[in-house]
Design a protein around this nucleic acid. Structure first.
Lengths: 191, 191
DNA sequence: GCCAGTCTGGCAGTCACTGCCAGGCTGGCA
DNA sequence: TGCCAGCCTGGCAGTGACTGCCAGACTGGC
């Protein structure tokens, strides 16, 4: 059962998140201080840091779930499926998590335009890749060696193409479908 | 002509760099404070920050040159060369910049094991990719559209394979040649 | 030997982030 | 209904990276 505490927490959390996203888009990420967000959201800095681990987490978008969704999707994929198919399905599943088109575009734009955010995101993405490694490795032909290297290369390439797709998508102001762009990018790579 | 100032600067710079690398490898990047490096190198914090923009730059390795070397190598490549050949040459040129095997391994290990450093490095690498974009785009078949996307995907894939190669190389304690691993990784991707 | 330009160190301040502590509110229990 | 235990909050102080400012020292050219 949800207690009053839970509801209060939920409310405060949403208020903080909304305030942060508003200020970030209005004046930029680096130009917005934690103090300002806390003030305008009506909580103390200390509390804000208790709700969210750090400034980057205020962008929200539920990135914590991404890792789980990726691994889950891959695990439920048929054993005989091609690794590229498997990765495609995982990426599609993550993209499907985004709420609205506009929100996603807003967040992605912020992400790609702010160096510090971009760095943090890339780092997080690399951790996802590490989590995927054993799953993909198990699905690779273990006949010729260097399965680790090949698995790493394939995973990294898939994300690289997703990166390219996302960037083009953002540059075109959300024109077209990210998944189509991903396919086109991968096609350009694999010939 | 080199003045006394230049020589002093050079000396101080090297002393700082050496101290930093030593402390980083001894106790870890995050566990080493700027104050400690400055103290042990015999300069003030203020001066240290004047020599090097920030803590990340203290890892050295001449990463500033990388962008220049990449673009230069690509520019001097024959016009009819395949984009993959061109990118391979550029990556090989950058790898050739590393002084010694041991130093390179030490730096790479630090880079891959420290989240904050890895994030910064990935960000820098992304900027290199942006610089390469027009050069590669110009070499792509402009017949079918989406040259931007295809160029982005190809560049990102090349770096992704380099990433995979470097990681495996570090995990194997510098066994084998990074370039060979790169070729193997790219082969796994392009079939 | 002197002046101008440059480099240096120290100080104070900002910003993200953390530990600690006292006070307040909530939820369950008598 | 009253009360105690437990969680939650805000404030305060501290750390670590980084910047602006200023005064003092040193160097290079005249």
């Amino acid at each position: 059962m949800t207690t009053l505490w839970d509801r209060t927490r939920q409310l405060a959390s949403q208020e903080i998140l909304a305030t942060a996203l508003r200020l970030f888009t209005e004046q930029g990420y680096d130009e917005t201080s934690i103090a300002q967000i806390a003030r305008e959201a009506g909580v103390s800095q200390r509390t804000l840091f208790r709700y969210f681990g750090g400034k980057e987490d205020l962008l929200g978008g539920g990135q914590e779930r991404f890792g789980q969704v990726l691994t889950d999707t891959i695990s439920t994929q048929p054993a005989e499926a091609d690794v590229w198919e498997v990765l495609r399905a995982a990426i599609a599943a993550v993209l499907a998590l985004h709420e609205s088109h506009e929100e996603a575009l807003k967040r992605f734009r912020l992400l790609h335009r702010t160096a510090s955010l971009r760095a943090g995101w890339l780092e997080k993405r690399l951790r996802f890749q590490d989590e995927l490694l054993p799953l993909i490795k198990a699905r690779m032909d273990s006949a010729d060696g260097a399965a680790e290297l090949r698995a790493r290369a394939v995973i990294a390439t898939a994300f690289a193409c997703l990166d390219a797709a996302t960037m083009v998508w953002v540059d075109d102001d959300g024109e077209g479908d990210v998944m189509d762009l991903y396919d086109a990018g991968l096609a350009a790579v694999r010939g």
